[in-house]
Amino acid sequence: MTGLDFNPVFAHLPFLLGGVGVTILIATLAFAFGLSLAVALAILRFENQGAWRRLSRSYSTALTNTPQLSQIFAVFYCLPLIGLMVSPFLSVVIGMTLNAAAYLADILGAGMARVPPVYHEVALTLGLNRRQTYLRVILPYAGRAMFPALANHFQIMILGSAMASIFGVEDLTGRAYDIGSTTFRILEVMLVTGGLYALLSFALTGVFALFRRTMERMV
């Protein structure tokens, strides 16, 4: 067995680094769309006791108890069946969005349950309508209360986006496979890629801490 040789990997480093942007883009899009869907799901279960609440909970139960990879496969193969031809990139974003919505709805739901009940009456007596109450009071309060969990889930999505490579998307992992298949230095390229994911995670931790401090100042 020969020793580790990183030089062929470093020779492709600019190409590999280009995948970081794709990774961030996939996770950010899926998180943003997932959060929007999660808000609707969380409000459904927050405001209703009956069928709507069960529907919202069933959605989360179904998608948090099945592999995300299966969900992306389902999107990838099912959408063409109904005549929707979407790119692998979009399939991955849609699949991750649906999965993120399930988890984020649970997180937001827990945050909304922590909103003091008197806030609803205060909002009413201040004249806020339902939309204003959610946008100005309930969601910001829940979001701040659950910020660590939301940030943590985004980091999980960054790492989970590596699944995109299975569908041929040239994210960080996808490009690592490409470099590995041309240099035959799979171990080295995966070690470097793992290091880049770790750096990305550390950087995000710093960004979230900064964001939180800024948010606390903007009271």
Binding site: P116, V118, L126
Partner: peptide, 22 residues
């Protein structure tokens, strides 16, 4: 229980309704 919104400054608690509603 007062019901001051805990995620807003005192000033924003006071100005929320006048700016958003009125």
């Amino acid at each position: 229980q007062y019901g001051l919104f805990g995620h807003m400054s005192v000033l924003r608690n006071l100005t929320l309704a006048p700016t958003v509603v009125a």
